[in-house]
């Protein structure tokens, strides 16, 4: 399990996430793309903590901050989906041509 191999796996997860976030129409699927991107980022971060930081605990700390970002993204994302659905009956991005009130 070399550092490079883990980093390449992380890059692959991030790349798939980019593809998903750009290509999906449904809000929920789009969020899954974002999640995969953060997933790859956490993996890269932890391997660098384990292999290149000499065991500095702040590396793990940063990963926890990333997880917070993920939780915030999910919570606000679902709240916005709910809000948008109430006003526009929209469940896909194409319905949001006009972003006004």
């Amino acid at each position: 399990m070399s550092t490079e191999a883990v980093l390449i796996a992380a890059a692959a997860l991030f790349g798939i996430g980019v593809y998903g976030a750009l290509s999906q129409q449904s809000f929920v699927m789009l969020m899954m793309g974002l999640e995969l991107m953060i997933n790859g980022a956490i993996l890269a971060l932890v391997v660098l903590w384990a292999r290149a930081a000499g065991g500095n605990p702040q590396g793990q700390m940063l990963a926890i901050v990333f997880m917070t970002v993920m939780a915030v993204e999910m919570a606000l994302g679902f709240a916005l989906i709910t809000g948008v659905y109430r006003v526009r009956r929209a469940d896909i991005t194409e319905k949001l041509r006009r972003l006004k009130g």
């Binding site: 550092t3 490079e4 980093l7 390449i8 992380a10 890059a11 692959a12 991030f14 790349g15 798939i16 996430g17 980019v18 593809y19 998903g20 750009l22 790859g40 890269a44 660098l48 903590w49 384990a50 292999r51 290149a52 930081a53 000499g54 065991g55």
Partner: peptide, 22 residues
Amino acid sequence: GLAAFLALAAVGLLGDFPDRPA
């Protein structure tokens, strides 16, 4: 997506990370 993967994988392969395991 492919571009993101290639760029990041290149960074992972070519980058010079210090070898200081936990």
